[in-house]
Design a protein around this nucleic acid. Sequence first.
DNA 1: TTACTTTGTTCAACCGACAAACTAATAAAA
DNA 2: TTTTATTAGTTTGTCGGTTGAACAAAGTAA
Lengths: 394, 394
Amino acid sequence: MLQTGDQFLVKKINKSIVLETIKKNGPISRAQISEVTGLNKSTVSSLVNELIQEEFAYEIGLGQSKGGRRPLMLLFNTTAGHAIGVDIGVNYLLAVLTDLQGNIVQETMLTIANLSFENIVDLLKQTIQALIDQAPPSKYGIVGIGIAVPGIVDEHGQILFAPNLGWENVDVKSIIQGHFHLPVTINNEAKAGAMGEKIFGVGKGIAHSVYVSLGIGIGTGIIINNELYKGCNGFAGEMGHIPIEPNGKKCRCGNRGCWELYASENALLEQAKALAIPPAPNEPEITLAHLVTLADEGHHEVINLFNQVGEYIGLGLTTIINTFNPELIVIGNRMTSAEKWLINPITRIVENRSLAYSRKQLRIQFSGLNMHSAVFGAVSFAIDDFFANTRISL
Amino acid sequence: MLQTGDQFLVKKINKSIVLETIKKNGPISRAQISEVTGLNKSTVSSLVNELIQEEFAYEIGLGQSKGGRRPLMLLFNTTAGHAIGVDIGVNYLLAVLTDLQGNIVQETMLTIANLSFENIVDLLKQTIQALIDQAPPSKYGIVGIGIAVPGIVDEHGQILFAPNLGWENVDVKSIIQGHFHLPVTINNEAKAGAMGEKIFGVGKGIAHSVYVSLGIGIGTGIIINNELYKGCNGFAGEMGHIPIEPNGKKCRCGNRGCWELYASENALLEQAKALAIPPAPNEPEITLAHLVTLADEGHHEVINLFNQVGEYIGLGLTTIINTFNPELIVIGNRMTSAEKWLINPITRIVENRSLAYSRKQLRIQFSGLNMHSAVFGAVSFAIDDFFANTRISL
DNA sequence: TTACTTTGTTCAACCGACAAACTAATAAAA
DNA sequence: TTTTATTAGTTTGTCGGTTGAACAAAGTAA
């Protein structure tokens, strides 16, 4: 059964447009909204009044006159409700409580010692409960919980495979939903990162972009027509496993020469070990942070290593550029900390290898969200779902 | 300015749904349409009557009773108008006149001897005029002209670069539009092929698919959410130039090791030449058809060659599968004639190298449209534009 | 013949967007 | 200061579209 049209659909569309306009351009008057959106003044007035009733917007006072009656300025009520986002990393758990515009109210970061499923679920429950307890009272309360995980998630939010956590076929969604009786969305970490950048980061307002999560492995989140592309089963964007070296190293995915074997943090560290580069004095193993320090100190081997890995990153980006002709590529996750040493080889390869046409309007940027892309994305899923579902019923 | 909602939008949506339902499920009664779409009986009745007035649908007679009054069956009026599609190949020009459902009324195929721009434009004009002259009279006449070209086309229909035709920055759209005073759409050959398969071929009804045009070079057309994805400047899908061998052969695009250097018809023929495989007795150069014949006759070297090229094809498909998680990959263009010798290495590589999750629901099919994918796609652009534009005014 | 179904139309009700007329508030000009 | 023009926001009536109920038409089954 297709989505047919009726007056409720019209109202939903227009009300969304009005709210989005207030969110984006606030403080803004009714008259300006009418001008910007093309909607009639009276339509805007009526919709705005409903939004005020529902506490999604409020009047902040009179604005500057432009030669006539002074406008009544409107603002989005960011604290009509709150949302929770969680990023389950391989050895950490980052959780935030935000208002409806993604402003962080409270944040928890903890290191995971015991990787067992039961332990992580317990930590999840405790952390989320703590955040819920700290949420200021509001009209809509906690509107939802978004969770990002480093693994393969299907279209129903089932976690099929998270190798770095040792999980297979686990239903975190039902567990958390059953425990808190709140809407829960589960998404792959790279997809969440893509949405985080799209809503709160450098991807704001950009229709077609690709987020590349360069972490222990590599994942990508693809934004097409302002929406996350999930593919027919939810598995789109597993570009960490595109073949880059046809006869390259064997990957546990079954393929050979996968991109992430050459361009991820893991790849970098393994090669550093192979070169017998010593770890920092007080650490047992070599770390990314230490490699950056060594490069900063002028360590030639390490600088070459970054060059080499950067070139492989650029090679994968070439595939992305020629395939998607995106307006923006955002590079996120742990490897952003080495931006300084990676940006040159990346741009060199991209400029030499990708199609000039597809590259014309392209920007490549490192995430500015400071490792919060995924958690912001998780939040944005929760908030989007809230608006998509609640507002229909009006 | 965003697309706001009003009653006209609602009507446009619903009328489209009704017409699509008739197209897809006809012969069908008003009552059945109401049931299938969820629209009210009276709404359906009123919209159907308008469609009949406009000659987009007609009543074909009474159907079988299901225990009550016999239904009046409706059919889409495929000949309310006609469309023209042209596929400009590297040495041929294929043009068709079809009805509104893509049924071919007339077809012209001619070989191009003189590749000069002026000559091809002349041929285009003559061929199109001949088809227009042969179109049966109808309410809407020729609704549009769609043209597919082997090259890079921007979002405005400008042909920026067609290496195999020797064209750069030519405005065929304005020329043809000015000459015939009909709407003209220009698209890349692979994008057209993708739409052709989506509307008239094996891709019918499939939301996410990728069409791979294996011809002299390689191009791809990406269907996402039932729509062609063009990217931010119209250049998406240039996957012939994704790097497959990082230190491979130099490509004229500036990159190295591009997919099309290893998996296209050209790649196949060049390697055949390198192996000194002799051409057919009466032909100056080796051809694909002849290689297929040799393979059929058991020529080991040629069979190995097909295996090798097929494996490279599979390698690129792996990238497509892991990136897009499509429901369907359609392989089209000239290399389809070697399906028999390519299908095995392709599936072997795909099964060994692509992610099992992403592959679960995947089908890989060779085009059944017999080299007509692109020309059908060109037609579908013309027809789609007609319905998108005409019907708004109602 | 009667009762029940299914199909398609008609008509009043409703809902939302819109345009025009209105009130309100202000700046600039006389 | 008064007048005029301008901008902001509300009110009112109209228009177009979907909907549901009632109805007529045309059938089946017992």
